[in-house]
Amino acid sequence: MRKNLRKDLFVISKLINNKEKILDVGCGSGNLLDFLLKTKKAICRGIEISQSGVNDCVKKGLSVIQGDANYDLDDYPDDAFSTVILSQTIQAMIFPDKVIKNLIRIGRRAIISFPNFGYWKVRKDLMLKGKMPKNDILPYEWFDTPNIHLCSCKDFQIFCKNNNIIIEKFMCLSEKGIEMKTNYFSNLLAYQVIFCVSKKNKN
């Protein structure tokens, strides 16, 4: 079962406690939700924009609605979930700021993962080649990429600070998907990053 799971999703799954109530935003084919349902007995819900993704999810018996996270998260009530997951999707959102605020409103915490645009090889592509960066998780050409709001690890940290969002946990992954220790140079060394965030002043 784990074989089907992307490495960053497996790292995220380790952050989930048993019987948590999860919303996976942009759940794709539902591999993470299916894994959490079976290994953590989680109560799982999902939103997915593509019809083929939703089809795959409902075939797995998952409760998933076809929708657009840019707009449809507004419909969910406050604190409806213990954890809301947004993996490798934030950079494709039209309103990432609104989406992040919705995530921590709906869930007691949000787990957000994204490709780090501050990674040294990304910088190298621009600086030495003078071209838009491309790699395994940023595979698109400049003209066909859905990634319209890329950010670096540092950008995200600054965003959280400015918006009173608490960073509960911060994890870095290497190109091979292996967890790295975080340090002062993480913004330069991390290929992918995972943040657990929550809103301030919660009771």
Binding site: Q51, V54, N55, C57, V58, L62, S63, V64, I65, Q66, G67, D75, Y76, P77, A80
Partner: peptide, 15 residues
């Protein structure tokens, strides 16, 4: 769907 979401129901939806 909005109402079902707010009442935590098990709901799937496809257009």
């Amino acid at each position: 769907i909005k109402s079902l979401n707010s009442s935590n129901s098990m709901v799937s939806f496809v257009e």
